[in-house]
């Protein structure tokens, strides 16, 4: 009988099925572990720091002497300065570069090919190396010193590849027919880009800018290299002032020998992660709205 399976064969099939199920369970377990890691980390932060977060924590200066009174005013303000200036510098550069690559020089030549390869490579350079570029170029050669301006310029170069790549994707997603319709009406290329392509690509570009802001707010290493300080008890008046940022304040407190400062570090991390969550949700909402419109 060719339809029947011998006992040995059946046992073999059962074993293979069992193995297959075990492999599936293993993959599921890995996913579960990844989520468990994230939840453990967040839970640990809430346990350590949630009680410490208060209005006065946000509005007090840091203190070496009194961990219970120390706050994150100077670092929060510093982070806002750096983030705002970084966005100011990187948006025209990143969007301009993307427009050049996707709209103005659509036929590939040696220059565009070189730029494309270069952007991919630049995105893989460790962040601390950007700090070293900033140290020599902005601090010493341009003479900006260890100022907010230097920090923001360094950060702008760091997030530039990301802004270019996301903007390119956003421009690519605009249908070709839109451009053709506009050009057929006798507009110039720039008029088409400004009035037709950019408005349609705006949600995508905005998402990229928000993600760049999130990156800029969390980065620490390059800012240490270009001279941001751990403990600052004044607010910067201008872009030439010295400054600290939230991650650096966290570093300072996390490395402090006194345990009370660990609590302050956890609280500052919660504020930082809350900021990142706000930025990320904004990006998600913008993306969702744009998809609904189409």
């Amino acid at each position: 009988m060719n339809g029947a399976l011998s006992g040995a064969n059946l046992a073999h099939i059962r074993k293979r099925r069992l193995k297959s199920q075990m492999f599936g369970a293993l993959c599921g377990a890995a996913a579960f572990i990844a989520v468990a890691i994230l939840l453990t980390l967040i839970g640990k932060l809430l346990v350590d720091g949630l009680n410490r977060v208060s209005w006065s924590f946000l509005t007090s200066m840091p203190s070496q002497m009194f961990p219970a009174k120390a706050g994150i005013k100077s670092s929060l303000v510093g982070s806002m300065w750096v983030m705002a200036l970084t966005i100011l510098f990187v948006v025209p550069l990143g969007v301009g570069a993307a427009i050049y690559l996707e709209e103005l020089q659509t036929r590939e030549n040696w220059f565009t090919r070189f730029v494309r390869i270069n952007i991919a490579n630049l995105a893989g350079v460790p962040s601390i190396v950007f700090g070293m570029l900033g140290l020599t170029l902005f601090v010493y050669v341009f003479g900006f010193g260890k100022s907010i301006l230097t920090g923001a310029l360094t950060m702008a170069i760091l997030v530039l590849p990301m802004v270019i790549l996301v903007s390119q994707e956003a421009l690519k997603a605009v249908p070709k027919s839109f451009r053709e319709a506009s050009l057929a009406m006798g507009t110039t290329q720039w008029q088409t880009v400004r009035r037709v392509v950019l408005p349609n690509a705006l949600p995508g570009i905005l998402t990229g800018i928000i993600l760049a802001a999130a990156r800029a707010i969390g980065e620490t290493a390059p800012l240490i290299v270009v001279g941001a300080v751990g403990l600052v008890t004044f607010l910067p008046d201008s872009v030439d002032d010295r400054y600290t940022v939230l991650p650096l304040q966290i570093l300072d407190w996390a490395q402090h020998p006194r345990a009370e400062f660990k609590t302050a570090a956890a609280a500052a991390i919660l504020v930082l992660i809350a900021l990142l969550l706000v930025l990320n949700s904004a990006a998600i909402i913008i993306r969702a709205r744009a998809q609904k419109k189409v």
Binding site: A34, E219, T220, A221, P247, I250, I269, L272, L276
Partner: peptide
């Protein structure tokens, strides 16, 4: 998870 800053 990928977006959590390194210092954290």
């Amino acid at each position: 998870l990928a977006g959590i800053p390194s210092v954290v």
